[in-house]
Every structure is written in structure tokens, then in C-alpha cells.
Computed example of a mutant assay.
Amino acid sequence: MSQERSDEELLAAFQQGDVGAFEALLRRHRAPLFTFLLRMLGDRERAEDLAQETFLRIVKGAAAWEQRARFSTWLYTIARNLCVDQSRRDRFRRTGSLDETGPEGESPLVDSVPGYEAPPDRAAESSRLRVVLQEALLSLPAEQREVFVLREQAGVPFKEIAEMVGCNENTAKSRMRYALEGLRKALLAAGIDEELAQEEPSTGVRMGRA
């Protein structure tokens, strides 16, 4: 069995014209990226729109990409910046679509990739936990929420988070600690045991230590 190609190898192949490599990246990252955006925005429709816009920018910027950082860091930097832009606008205006034809009149790049479908609720308790966690996340200051979601949802190292958000690494870790404290208080106030939150995979976060 051949070894699965890394994100960076797939993007390099896409730069050489391998559309299937981009489709593989899309399948690999679409669901976690959507969850990241949903955690940041608290709005499913906007999260779907910005996920599409993020991948559109990946397509447009792929030719100039150089491997100075992980592909996932580039992906989430774009998504994070779109979230910042979104927060500054009174309403969202869609600016592009992955359904557009590619360069030189090629077919849409993602015609063969099915659209994202959020996973169904597993149980009422799990659903309530997700709702409480989302409300708690949205109640955090934006700078704490983005560090928490980048670290726990996207798995970005603190050093790269600091570069993405424009602070030093110690500040990023400090924001993470404050975010964890705020979330734990919110879960406790809602009568949800922290261990349950850690064990429930559908939340998409680990509630670990900074």
C-alpha cells in the first residue's frame, strides 16, 4: 500500500496541474475547516460561505505558494483573516465561488467532490453540550476564542498561532489559559461536567491545558 501523501506534497502536485491533488486536500480539510469557522462565527451559513472562500483563495494562491510553513497553517491563516474581516462588516457579501471555472476555461475544480454535510446529532445530551460550548466560545473575547480554536480544533502550534495573530508566543499561551478558564466556568454554570466535555468527541475540542 502506498503511503498517503502529505498536504505539502499534494499542493506541490496541484501546482503542477494535478487537479485530483487539490480534491484530496479538499476532502481532507473541508470538515475540520468548517468546524473551525463555525466555532469562530457561530453561524452555519457564514461558516459554509467562508469555507468555500478559503479554498477559493487557496486555488488562486497555489501557484505562488512556497513551503515556508505547513499547508494547514496557511489554510487556517486565510480562514482566520476572513473571520476578522467578517466581524468588521455589517453583513456578509459573497465574493466568489468554487463553482467558477478554473484558469483557461477548465471545468470547476470541485465538481466531483460532494458538498459538506454536518454530522447528525448523536444524542440530546451531546447536542446540548455542543450548544453550551458554542455559546461559551462566542462569549469569550475574540483574541482568546481564536487562540483556543486554532489550538484545540485546528491543532496549530503556539509558535505558529502567535505569528498568525500578531503576538508573541507567551501571549498566545496566556490567552489560551484565560480561554480555558472561561470555558470551564461556563460549563460548570451550565451543570456540565468537564470530564464529559473532554470525552465527547462531537465537540471537536479537547479542553486540555494550555
Results as ranks from 00 to 15, higher is better:
R30G: 12
V165S: 00
F36K: 06
F36V: 04
V147P: 03
R151F: 09
L183M: 04
L150H: 09
E48I: 09
I78G: 07
G191K: 11
R91T: 13
A162G: 05
A186S: 15
A210M: 03
R39K: 13
Q198I: 00
A31R: 08
R28D: 07
D18L: 03
A31E: 11
G105P: 12
T101F: 11
T73E: 14
P157K: 11
E160H: 03
R89Y: 11
L25D: 03
Q15R: 06
Q153S: 15
R122D: 13
E199T: 08
Y178F: 11
K185P: 06
A123V: 00
V19H: 08
P141H: 02
A136D: 00
G17Y: 08
D18T: 02
P201A: 05
E125D: 10
F34G: 04
L33Y: 02
R30I: 05
R44E: 15
G42A: 10
R209F: 12
S139M: 05
T95A: 15
F14H: 05
A47S: 04
P119F: 14
G115N: 07
V149H: 01
R46N: 06
E195K: 08
V59W: 13
T35I: 07
L98H: 02
L37F: 04
L180Y: 09
P201S: 06
R68N: 13
F158Q: 03
V156H: 08
A79P: 01
A136G: 03
M164D: 12
K173P: 03
A123E: 07
A179N: 05
E194V: 12
R88G: 12
L196N: 07
R88D: 07
D111V: 08
R5A: 12
A62K: 04
A24W: 05
S97L: 08
L109R: 14
Q153P: 02
N81M: 15
L11G: 02
G204W: 08
A62T: 01
V84T: 14
R57N: 13
G208S: 14
A51S: 14
W65G: 03
A79G: 01
R175K: 11
R68S: 11
F55L: 07
M207R: 03
D7P: 02
Q198L: 05
G115S: 09
H29S: 06
K60M: 10
E48Y: 07
L56W: 09
F158T: 01
A13F: 01
A179P: 06
R89D: 13
D193C: 10
